[in-house]
Design a binder for these strands. Structure first.
Lengths: 354, 354
DNA sequence: GAGCTTGATTTGAGCGTTCCAAATGCATTG
DNA sequence: CAATGCATTTGGAACGCTCAAATCAAGCTC
């Protein structure tokens, strides 16, 4: 039964609460209550008012609500230009999840274009017009960055996607348990019979990278497998990875766990160089499940982050914080999941065609 | 000279216009004018008021402004979940450009999470709370979709990223001249000495795909090169492309222009299959300059869309439309640019190492 | 010096909503 | 019958800002 939706635009202005009230023969406050506290109205009044609301196509003005209630129902999100571009898809999915979760809670995401070259705090000062947003979602919060402290001091509720790896922990966050992901990757490879499992990561000191390395190390230890000489570090690009992984292959690794899909791709290149086939000769596992993972040939097994869940958690944490600013900080660690593809073929399945 | 920025949060509420007025010894309206129409004030008054504004850290309340001026300074943008994921980086960059351009004009981007499975119009009805946004940016407007008509009827200003290929043209848009991009690709290949240049595209009927095909065809004709048997169509995924391109290679094509980087990748696979090397044996040009283009080996020459410019244009067109709703529609076509990489080596440069 | 223009500032009202306190009706009760 | 309780509804007032019109002080003209 489609609502009438009589076109309201040709008329003068938009339909206001007062117009609805007049038409329904009640006071404006009653209409307001019909929307915000229906339980206060007598059922028959409620029904009548609702009927008029529908009939007139009334929508409360967000601006007026925001002014009166001091709540804009907006959540800020600072997007940063991604230089390499390889994490863009990840952030895109995250943003989507965030937006969806926010919508479901009656909130909207408001974008703040952080200028390239890091979130200059000076800009933030100007950027965040006090009342504009009810809360903030920060991403890439790996390291202590000034934004947290700044927002905390301002009393603006915020939540981070990502732990803080250095400095004092401030505020709530949701993050993905990277160690658990690489642990699962090792577990998977061990089950396939691998024992010489190497790790290709980023230089130490990056919290995210160290976390992922730790999961590999932990799982290796658990299985009594040696980690010495099985770990290499590389910059984030394909070429650096190709070079960095060589010693690991020379040392006879039969499997490589990489800290990112891009690094895994470097590994592919290194293998091709020596006429070896990823998946057949050496197993490779990436991290992030970026679009390239599915596109590579052979397709790349990788650790997928539960971005939808992270988005939901971020919104949940943020709303909780807004409801109770004094509550103790809450931190959520989510489990990633291993996506098995052709670069780690399970025995019995067809070897990947090259 | 850093502004004082005395922390305003410990105080009671936020600083209001009236407080500033009282402190500066002027009327509220004068403070308002100091911000919105500085030229109305006597220079010395202006300076004094500005001093107090800075000193108190005053920021106008967007909510109150929006209520009074009936303009939220918000631009809506419907983000859709990208299924394949390979255009995500493109849209991510576009969104970024959009946000940046909007910021510079004093606007902010508000995200609408379009539910997966197409923009259900019913949802839009609920989604767009009349006053919420001043205007709308639509993307993926390739085909006539109901949103345009709906927004037009509602009197909501909007601009599309992408022409409408079917149906009546409605409203303003900015788009990238795909034909010009593939034309340039052919031009480049011809300059390298190629004559048997094939085109690998999507099935006919997709406006964007036909546009890109047309550019290839046009350039081929211009050079008196035959196009018969040099064109293949494929679904958008790598595997389909790998298969679809085979006949073109069999027919002796020395170069392939693809309608997307993903299709180009399929082409890479097909070449590898026959022990040919992209760039050395057969030149390949993609479209979109997605992250994979730079990551592939050999790196992929591709046509890059000027997304930053498109973003700026979208904002410009939208603002113009809002300023003058009755103006005739304006449409802008932007030139993409060819990014030459190793898959189309220029003579004299090193052949790409495999 | 009366009248007119110009420039600078103030006054009053209202944007559309929700909060607060008070009023209304009506049944129950001392 | 007056008093009490409860459920339902109402009347201002206020949120912080800007628009339109009014005021005030000079500066000019004749």
């Amino acid at each position: 039964m489609p609502r009438s939706t009589s076109s309201p635009s040709p008329k003068g202005g938009p339909v206001t609460l007062a117009m609805v009230a007049r038409r329904a023969g009640v006071s404006p406050q009653t209409v307001s209550n019909a929307i915000n506290s229906p339980e206060l109205l007598r059922p028959e009044t409620l029904e009548r008012v609702r009927g008029v609301i529908d009939e007139m196509g009334y929508r409360p003005s967000r601006a007026a609500q925001a002014l009166r209630t001091r709540s804009s129902k907006l959540i800020g999100y600072g997007i940063q230009p991604v230089p390499g571009g390889d994490t863009a898809p990840v952030m895109d999915r995250f943003l989507h999840a965030l937006s969806q979760a926010a919508d479901e809670a009656g909130y909207r995401m408001l974008l703040f274009a952080c200028p390239p070259g890091g979130p200059s705090l000076e800009g933030y000062e100007e950027l965040l017009g006090q009342h504009d947003v009810d809360g903030f979602v920060l991403s890439n919060t790996a390291r202590q960055d000034p934004r947290q402290a700044w927002l905390a001091k301002r009393g603006v509720p915020f939540v981070g996607f990502g732990r803080m790896w250095s400095g004092r922990q401030i505020g709530d966050w949701a993050d993905v348990d990277g160690a658990s992901g690489t642990d699962a990757a090792v577990e998977h490879l061990v089950a396939l019979g691998h024992r010489r499992i190497a790790f290709l990561g980023w230089p130490r000191g990056s919290g995210v990278g160290d976390d992922r390395a730790a999961g590999w190390q932990r799982a290796m230890r658990r299985h009594g497998l040696p980690t010495r000489g099985r770990r290499a570090e590389s910059a984030g690009d394909v070429e650096a990875a190709r070079i960095a992984v060589k010693p690991l292959l020379d040392a006879g690794a039969t499997a490589v766990v990489a800290a990112s899909d891009t690094l895994a791709l470097g590994c592919y290149h290194a293998l091709r160089e020596r006429n070896a086939v990823p998946g057949r000769d050496v197993a490779v596992v990436g991290f992030d499940d970026s679009p390239i993972a599915g596109i590579l040939s052979p397709s790349l097994s990788t650790v997928a982050q539960p971005l939808e869940a992270v988005g939901r958690e971020c919104v949940r944490l943020l709303l909780a914080r807004m409801a109770n600013p004094a509550a103790p900080p809450e931190r959520v660690l989510l489990e990633p999941s291993l996506v098995v593809r052709d670069s780690t073929p399970v025995p019995g399945s067809d070897a990947p065609a090259l």
